[in-house]
């Protein structure tokens, strides 16, 4: 780890100001991706702004048709929250399967989204549910948030405060895990909401994306079999030592079918 200045502001305003003022500052939430990167000297910010003491970033709220999760809510809290279990059980199950127990006990929703790891689980849920990301500045629709490999719509000094998930009629997530990292080799989140079906794919490409062809088929008939012949073309998908683009393309269909089947079964 290279040396850095450390700040632990008590308010959102103070945190934003610290991040704005220090060009090479980074926000620290759970740190489960950032700290390994610091240790391996892959990241070397001049300052860290620890969001851990900011109360306003915490809390889960189920209000009518919207589930709101604070940015600093840990994965383990989402996995065990009664409100999440009632509102979007698929989200609780997704959170229960992120990383491992210790990571879930530190990692946060806001941190995962700001990092936008191409194989992370949460981006699939946020995009697959058509959620809205709230920051200290504005509200950003999921479709406008994830821009590319580790790239988001967040601007300097902008901090995610919470995410508002509209409650779907039914939803599910199916993941084929990378056996080494346990990140998604391919993960597919499907949801059927008020008048729309969403299919979001993580792990397969440089950034989470929607499988629109699948959405069309499912909008007509929300059943796994309609996807049997729908294939996301391998061009542009990731190809690495863990899986070829062709295999990932194949897995997208398999995982999408399984997610739909689970959503239909209410599992």
């Amino acid at each position: 780890m290279r040396a850095f200045d450390y700040h632990r502001p008590a308010t959102l305003k103070e945190a934003a100001s610290l991040l704005r003022k220090n060009e090479n500052a980074r926000a620290l939430s759970g740190g489960q991706s950032l700290i390994p990167a610091l240790k391996l000297r892959l990241a070397a910010p001049a300052a860290l702004v620890d969001l851990g003491a900011i109360e306003e970033l915490r809390g889960i709220k189920l209000d009518g048709a919207v589930l709101t999760v604070g940015a600093m809510v840990r994965h383990s809290e989402v996995a065990t929250s009664r409100d999440v279990a009632i509102g979007i059980p698929a989200l609780a199950r997704l959170a229960e399967d992120i990383g491992d127990r210790q990571v879930r006990n530190m990692g946060t929703l806001g941190g995962a989204l700001a990092n936008n790891d191409p194989a992370a689980d949460y981006p699939a849920a946020v995009l697959g549910l058509g959620a809205t990301i709230h920051t200290n500045k504005r509200a950003i629709a999921a479709d406008k948030f994830f821009l590319g490999l580790y790239e988001t719509a967040l601007k300097r000094g902008e901090i995610i405060t919470s995410v508002a998930f509209p409650l779907p009629k039914r939803a599910a997530y199916a993941k084929f895990a990378n056996p080494a990292s346990r990140f998604a080799l391919v993960g597919v989140f499907v949801s059927e909401g008020a008048g729309s079906v969403r299919v979001a794919v993580t792990g397969a490409a440089p950034c989470v994306f929607r499988a629109k062809d699948m959405e069309k088929k499912l909008a007509a008939n929300f059943a796994p079999d309609v996807l049997a012949k729908v294939r996301v073309p391998p061009d542009g998908l990731n190809s690495d030592i863990h899986a070829s683009a062709e295999y990932r393309a194949h897995l997208i269909t398999v995982m999408a079918k399984r997610a739909v089947a689970a959503a239909v079964a209410g599992k």
Binding site: A180, S181, I241, H242
Partner: peptide, 16 residues
């Protein structure tokens, strides 16, 4: 070396 961390080298875990 492309398998230089546990992110890329799959060591068996309990559920494997």
């Amino acid at each position: 070396l492309l398998t230089g961390t546990y992110m890329d080298y799959a060591l068996p875990r309990a559920d494997d």
